[in-house]
Write a protein that binds this DNA or RNA. Structure first.
Lengths: 196, 196
DNA sequence: ACATCATTGCACACTAGTGTGCAATGGGCC
DNA sequence: GGCCCATTGCACACTAGTGTGCAATGATGT
């Protein structure tokens, strides 16, 4: 349907363009090709050499971000790992990288919402399945359906990431897990209650 | 600085335009004047009769939404009310109206992010103050700084609102309060643990 | 019947961004 | 030197949206 290798052969510039675009569009979702090019230190025309249209750039970028997240998830949450531990590990690994994936939540609404949603869909399904597994094993609460709970926790990660919380030593993955996900679960969960 | 009454005298159409714009821009933040007009059953030219520019429309709409939220907050959270009760009441009242205010979170990023942020700032400050009050009284946990906690809870409301949760009987205000806000607080909080 | 006024329809100018074509430029490599 | 090729610079056409001007329409109230 479409060529797998478009643009010049220098895969170097291509990667850099994607990196820069992730950064720029993460802050300003409706930035144009010109702004991305400028931020990458090239001219607008060059970007078109690698991505024939803005939408292709956006989708390529989203696809790569989703692939990365998928890899992290697969690595942190093998099927034989307890759901709560897997979830916490996943978020803990994702936490230092939120600035790279914030672009996804930013682009969900907007012109390409449909494509982004499709890409993200697979991740969110896996996440929901993980949460459901946790609920079945009794590790997570049943105060909300798995899908909603997963969404809430997932979005909380990015909300807190926007809050300068990176500079603190707060273990956000533990906070979200023990608060949102474990509501109503008996047992010791004071694990992370740092007294400030 | 600017005229308080712009446009024709029929304040009827003006209100309807704002209502429709809230709806339309809530779903498609970058919809144009034409789409708003069409959704309101008028012609593009008419909208310009009431709002001299798109940015004025957006800001007016945001201002009204923020005013409404401020009113609800003031009503639900008088200073003499316990912080946790006040918070729960506030969200409970807001919950049926989330579709009206979703536009605010949608417009935070985007061209008018600065203006929206300024408007929302006052609300979020009040909210943070309320959460801080709750932390001081021991009603809320101290696992996160008041500002971040407030943000997380606030955004969780809209995340869950996007999740078809309106059709269930789940008490979202109680869920958010008891999970996110009350982490680590001793005492009975099983209040809402509906067994599914 | 008349005046008022919101609304319409259509014209226009302007802007900003997209996507393309093509001839230079210039660095790296044989 | 001579080739390759990524990049540049500049041209252009095209689109979509904004904001304005103005005359026509039509409902409402007197």
């Amino acid at each position: 349907m479409q060529k797998e290798s478009s643009g010049p052969r220098g895969g170097d510039t291509r990667e850099r363009l994607l990196d820069v675009a992730i950064e720029v569009l993460g802050k300003t979702p409706d930035a144009g090709m010109g702004e991305v090019a400028a931020a990458a230190g090239v001219v607008r025309r060059t970007v078109y050499g690698y991505f024939p249209s803005r939408s292709e750039l956006v989708v390529a970028l989203a696809r790569r971000a989703v692939d990365e997240i998928t890899a992290v998830l697969a690595e942190a949450a093998p099927v034989d790992k307890a759901a709560d531990v897997a979830w916490t590990d996943f978020i803990a690994r994702l936490w230092p990288l939120t600035h790279r994936y914030r672009v996804l939540v930013a682009l969900r609404r907007g012109e390409f919402g449909a494509d982004i949603h499709a890409l993200l869909g697979t991740v969110e399904q896996s996440l929901a399945a993980l949460v459901a597994r946790g609920q079945e094993s009794g590790a997570f609460g049943r105060h909300l359906p798995a899908g909603s709970l997963s969404q809430a926790a997932w979005s909380a990660v990015f909300t807190l990431a926007d809050d300068d919380l990176h500079r603190t030593e707060i273990d956000v993955s533990a906070v979200i897990t023990t608060s949102l996900l474990m509501l109503g679960v008996p047992g010791p969960r004071a694990k992370v209650l740092a007294e400030r």
